[in-house]
């Protein structure tokens, strides 16, 4: 286009004159907010994080209140005291990081470092307790991934079948061990040997459970219209792990004999596991990231110059804390 070209010609004079990284001036601005850019972008980042967890928590709420039934804390081995303790730990860590900031502002690098380490320690305690809680779940076969966990939604025939399979597996295993022991030990030692004794006890348990299971399965399977059907299966499930609706704990076979690990019946248990590990998992991940940053900060000298940085990571840490403040009642109390 002609015009543009003529303009180009007109301006090209000024152009090479000011092709000007050479005369590079450092510019001044009029900032819209009286805070450093670093702090602003951290706030903005946290707002995206809020939306992220809003998505997760929203999912939890929708799924939970959409579900026909939802397990009681005890049924999924969720202990409020432990959760409360962890909440307390996190809140303390929020305090310590603030103290670290104050110290840094006063250029008392060493005490700042101290508070930072305290925060680091508390955060690690939180994660440690989480690990412990997770282990408790795994120990009871409560987890949301393949191979299929021990959770079954309802006590139906394929639940019973699963129980039978587990029992038969145990039996054959024990029989094998028994015979190998027989071979190893000489007959008179056999009766007194502790291993043999415990093994025999276990076998006894398994045997009579197998017998019970057979009976239940048969009553259930034989004629479907029989009212006994459900009763039998429910009883089977209750023997293994009773549902606690009044919150009072009863003990089932699985609790009596840790090694049994029979399939358990928890209505809504699978969905519970999915959401529980989703929410706490992503939160734990955020805690972990915070701890990593803290560790990286240990070699630094935390004086006024670094105060801004301490403040920003502090903001992040408060956020992680806040998320937990939401998660705890949501997952443990309601």
């Amino acid at each position: 286009m002609v015009e543009a070209l003529t303009h180009a010609a007109a301006h090209s004079g000024a152009d090479h004159a000011g092709n000007g990284h050479a005369s590079h001036v450092s510019l001044q601005y009029h900032p819209g907010l009286p805070i450093p850019n670093g702090k602003l972008i951290v706030w903005l980042f946290l707002s995206t994080e809020i939306m992220f967890f809003a998505g997760l928590i929203g999912t939890y709420i929708v799924l939970r209140f959409g579900a026909p039934t939802w397990p009681m804390p005890h049924e999924v081995h969720l202990s409020e005291p432990i959760g409360a303790f962890n909440t307390f730990v996190l809140i303390c860590s929020s305090v310590t990081i603030v103290l670290a900031l104050e110290a840094a502002r006063a250029s008392q690098s060493t005490s700042a470092k101290g508070w930072l380490l305290a925060t680091l320690a508390l955060g690690s305690v939180f994660l440690g307790v989480k690990m412990y809680e997770y282990n408790a779940k795994f120990a009871h076969g409560i987890y949301p991934w393949r191979p299929h966990s021990l959770i079954y939604e309802k006590a139906d025939l394929n639940y019973a079948a699963a129980v039978r399979l587990r029992l038969e597996a145990l039996k054959s295993q024990f029989d094998a061990e028994d015979s190998s022991l027989k071979a190893a030990l000489d007959p008179e030692a056999l009766e007194t040997d502790s291993r043999v004794v415990t093994l025999r006890e276990k076998l006894a348990v398994v045997d009579d459970e197998i017998a019970y299971e057979k009976k239940a399965e048969i009553t259930a399977a034989t004629d479907p219209l029989n009212a006994e059907r459900h009763v039998a299966l429910e009883d089977l499930a209750d023997r293994i792990m009773p549902l606690v609706h009044d919150g009072g704990e009863e003990h089932g076979l699985n609790d009596a004999h840790e090694w049994l690990r029979l399939p358990i019946r928890i209505p809504g248990g699978n969905m519970w596991a999915s959401t529980y590990f989703l929410l706490t998992g992503f939160h734990a991940l955020h805690v972990l990231i915070g701890l990593i940053v803290f560790t990286l900060m240990i070699p630094m000298t935390l004086d006024v110059a670094r105060a801004g940085f301490v403040e920003n990571i502090g903001l992040y840490w408060h956020f992680v804390d806040l998320v937990w403040i939401f998660l705890f009642p949501l997952l443990y109390l309601f």
């Binding site: 903005l44 707002s47 995206t48 994080e49 939306m51 992220f52 967890f53 809003a54 998505g55 997760l56 999912t59 799924l63 949301p144 991934w145 393949r146 299929h148 939604e153 699978n270 969905m271 596991a273 999915s274 959401t275 590990f277 989703l278 992503f282």
Partner: peptide
């Protein structure tokens, strides 16, 4: 972007977990 995207990211993670791990966020009962 800042307010809408994280939700998709969360949803994407959930679908990944459904696919790879075996959770059931988007899987109807049975």
């Amino acid at each position: 972007q800042a307010f809408a995207l994280p939700v998709l990211t969360a949803a994407g993670f959930m679908q990944l977990l459904d696919r790879l791990l075996g959770t059931g966020f988007f899987i109807p009962p049975g």
